[in-house]
Write a protein that binds this DNA or RNA. Structure first.
Lengths: 343, 343
DNA sequence: CTGAAAGCGCTTACAG
DNA sequence: CTGAAAGCGCTTACAG
């Protein structure tokens, strides 16, 4: 393969100056339609596409947005955030750069090297609570910051999130309205307490609701992924709880689903004996008929990207900090509390 | 915030030339230890980090690798591929750029605009079967191509994959060795046939195994995510199959898990009456105790990135096209075939 | 509406 | 071991 065509080649081919080529290709005004057409044809003929590096160097705009992910890239939430961010970036000609700050070493390395520096026009931070000096480091990036699901939002020019606490309260309230009084919370299975971005707000909401509506908390469970068959252990514990819960609120759909099949295996019928409510309303939840608190992760990602783009263009955000509503979807794992309450 | 420091600022601060700064900061030889130290200190003091754009422009190396994802970014497989790719890129100072070619419009746009052009040093293509002219377009990128799970591999300089067909054969064989003779296959729920990257190889393997070992295929099921409660419908269909299958092979863990809880709800005990085998061995599978065909997605991603890096450095690949083994993990959803075979 | 020139911030031969 | 100069491929004032 020969070398890539440059703007000069196109200029020569079209018989104009590089200035005109640059203007024409970026759809800028003040180019004669005829000239523009000639340039476009020449560019197509030479298979030309501009070097982003060169453009970035002179314009100071990289046409890239960085997504900094706490914890891990994988998973329903972060995955859908990525989809949403990509949805809007791609339609605006921006590229998506991924950074992960999972383990503490990785995290330290990110803030030490700051690889995003001068390498993107904005950064979106997701599922991340920043330490004091990390905030400072981020500011050094000298680019707009948008936060998704971040504890504090003071360091960002824009943010978007759901209210985890309130959402969980609503879930409990909903189940209480179905007659449930004895509850149990199934916590996330891979807690990284040091990095928590408000993930614990769900359980806080749960406990608040228990108090507020005078319900009974039968206990909080965690599944340990390093043990053999964690879901069965959890199901066994639930079976032996006294009093026995009739409603289970899970931290996520994945937790809920794993438990669900074990409850049924143990012949604790769902929703006849126990109701179970997931969180997220992921694809699998819909497939499996799992009731769940739905959060619009993809929309959240898209909105974050929109904010980033606005910030890049220097327009002030009409609503810098957005809170998104969740809603409860009743599928086949929630129902009225069983009659024989005194089980 | 004032403008970012440039290499000139550092040179002035350290009292050397920009040449020396450049050398020193990139850990290149032929710089006196004393000089290097002085440069590093000056850079730290000014909070300097080199502009990748400028470096890319002159060196021709962007220090970025693009990941082109077929279908969607979300999901266990693509997510873990991303983690693996990131694992090795980040330790080598490379950035990760994401491109998605999901819908056909998006796909067309990608190959029309070729946003990765001159924007990365290599491209990794995942879960993607390319049309003739797409292959040509990709070649125009003029950078090394590494394919993950791609049907044809002729367009790539390196590739890595599992053998979906063989893996499924082994799954069936394993269940047959447990005494099962009547099988059923639960297909993926979001098939995009036009883009299939060999995803259908699993079902082909299933059918091959049925033939080879003289087993009975009781049918192939698909869950339609657009219908109400797809898993229950699938469970009902299985319950009414004659002859009734005693072993179910699922396209993925997610499918399997959704079905599992419904089977148990319908009092079709697993594994007592029916065994079910997932595919992937995802986190949730381990949690839920789902038996599964394990594929090392993260390792595959890492290896693909390693190949890309080698190719970038111009070293020939010792093993350009790698095939990775899967292995079966028996958890709590597979067991011996039930005695009363004539159910 | 179009052009010639300067310059973005680096790296890379070429010298010494 | 270090420096002065050229140049990567664009965009951006400045002219006309």
């Amino acid at each position: 393969m020969s070398r890539q065509a440059t703007i000069k080649d196109v200029a020569r081919e079209a018989g104009v100056s590089t200035f005109t080529v640059s203007k024409a290709l970026r759809n800028q005004p003040h180019v004669a339609p005829e000239t523009r057409k000639r340039v476009l044809r020449a560019a197509a003929r030479l298979n030309y596409s501009a070097s982003k590096s060169a453009a970035a160097l002179v314009s100071g705009k990289t046409k890239r947005v960085a997504l900094l992910i706490g914890e891990q890239i994988t998973g329903w939430f972060n995955g859908n955030i990525q989809e949403g961010v990509y949805d809007v970036l791609s339609t605006h000609g921006y590229d998506l750069l991924i950074y992960r700050a999972g383990t503490s070493e990785e995290r330290a390395a990110f803030f030490r090297n700051l690889p995003a520096k001068r390498n993107a026009d904005a950064i979106i931070v997701v599922s991340f609570t920043l330490a004091q000096k990390e905030t400072k480091a981020l500011q050094e990036l000298d680019m707009p910051i948008v936060a998704i699901h971040s504890g504090a939002t003071s360091f960002s020019q824009g943010s978007i999130r759901i209210d985890d606490c309130e959402s969980e309260i609503e879930a409990v309230q909903h189940l209480a309205s179905l007659g449930h009084t004895r509850f149990c919370f199934l916590d996330r299975f891979n807690p990284l307490p040091e990095y928590s971005w408000g993930a614990n707000q769900r359980i806080i909401g749960y406990k608040k609701a228990i108090d507020r509506y005078h319900l009974v908390d039968c206990g909080v469970l965690t599944m340990d992924p390093d043990r053999e068959h964690p879901a069965r252990t959890a199901a066994d514990r639930i079976a032996s709880m006294t009093p026995a819960p009739t409603a289970i609120c899970a931290w996520s759909d994945d937790c809920a689903l794993a438990l669900l099949s074990e409850l049924r295996q143990a012949e604790i019928r769902v929703p006849d004996v126990v109701s179970i409510m997931g969180f997220d309303s992921s694809d699998v939840a819909a497939l499996a008929g799992l009731s769940s608190v739905a959060q619009p992760a993809r929309d959240i990602g898209a909105e974050a990207a929109r904010k980033a783009l606005q910030l890049i263009n220097g327009s002030p955000l009409t609503e810098p900090h957005t809170q998104v509503k969740t809603h409860i979807i009743d599928r086949a794992t929630t129902g009225p509390a069983p009659r024989d309450e005194g089980r």
